[in-house]
């Protein structure tokens, strides 16, 4: 009775307005799904001419000739895989021990400002990394790091290196990507370290384990899925990064196995060629985009599944 008295004040009965409101919010939430489906539909639609013309050969062909209108995606795909692998291989171990240090052994006067700085590092736009890379880091690689790796460490005889130093190329791009994804991976790993129940860690410490042993034996096992989720998050970020890579990769469509040589990635090819593309060239670029979309979609799904399972495990506790 009472609620009836109060609800009289409203022009539209609350039951009705609430139902309308709920539908409106549900539609807004549904936009996420609609967008995701639209991404695939749109990109498949626009890459149809290229798919029809080149078929499966598109993925395995290294030919890239805008004059003859023949396109192959292999250099871009391989370049993406190489730079991403370098970035993840460097960033993941460093993030792991950095997160371990920050959570387990750093005093608050170090932990708080460093975590803060890492969060800010994650906020710096990728174009800044690109510019810094192009004007500062590329010359630095050329003058110091590449000669050091090749001469001092005598790696130049290996086919994956070489003795031509121009600073550009896969290795430089991979290093900058590593720096860019490190704060993201480290943030998730910090959370995983914090989520491990204190009792577990304390009993291991009580049994005489060192903090490295606790991290490897307890945290790694307890939060393995979270750690993998963190890796996939970083992977997803590295795979589609455009501006930082575009300036540094060297933009060459020739497939090369040397880490010192220039190459390209899917994102860099897209950004580099889009302005002058039309017809089948444009369609090929859309197909490249579709490949990138499929790659990051799979990475994200696997990563989110793992992260979700961890938080569910935490929720049950």
């Amino acid at each position: 009775m009472k609620s009836e008295l109060i609800s009289r004040k409203y022009l539209i009965p609350p039951e009705l307005s609430d139902r309308v409101f709920k539908i409106i919010t549900a539609i807004a939430a549904f936009v996420v799904i609609a967008l995701m489906v639209a991404f695939f539909v749109q990109l498949v639609w626009y890459s149809m001419p290229s798919i029809r013309q080149f078929g499966f050969k598109f993925i395995i062909s290294t030919e890239w000739d805008p004059v003859k209108n023949v396109f192959g995606a292999l250099p871009s795909i391989v370049g993406t895989l190489i730079t991403t692998s370098i970035a993840v291989a460097i960033a993941v171990p460093i993030s792991f021990i950095a997160a371990m240090f920050l959570v387990e052994s750093a005093p608050p006067c170090i932990q708080i400002p460093v975590s803060y700085a890492l969060d800010l590092l994650a906020a710096i736009p990728s174009i800044i990394f690109g510019m810094w890379g192009l004007f500062v880091f590329v010359p630095f690689m050329q003058d110091y790091i590449q000669p050091f790796l090749a001469e001092t460490l005598h790696l130049k005889s290996l086919p994956v290196f070489g003795d031509v130093y121009n600073g550009f190329g896969f290795l430089t791009a991979g290093l900058i990507l590593a720096l860019m994804i490190l704060p993201f991976i480290c943030a998730v790993m910090r959370d995983v370290f914090k989520m491990v129940p204190a009792v577990l860690k304390e009993s291991a410490f009580g049994a005489g384990a060192t903090s490295w042993e606790v991290s490897m034996g307890i945290t790694m096992k307890y939060g393995a899925r979270g750690m993998l989720g963190a890796v996939f998050l970083g992977l997803g970020r590295a795979v589609g990064e455009t501006m930082a890579v575009l300036f540094i990769i060297g933009n060459s469509q020739n497939l090369s196995y040397s880490l010192f040589s220039g190459g390209t990635t899917i994102a860099a090819t897209l950004a580099n060629n889009f302005a002058e593309a039309d017809g089948i060239f444009m369609s090929s670029l859309f197909e490249l985009g579709l490949i990138l979309l499929a790659m990051s979609f799979c990475i994200q799904i696997v990563g989110q599944l793992w992260l979700n399972r961890v938080s569910r495990k935490m929720g049950e506790r």
């Binding site: 967008l35 997803g236 979609f297 992260l307």
Partner: peptide, 16 residues
Amino acid sequence: AANVMMGMPSIIVGLF
């Protein structure tokens, strides 16, 4: 889906 979308490369959004 929102978590997946957050990880989509921004260049794909541009293309779309």
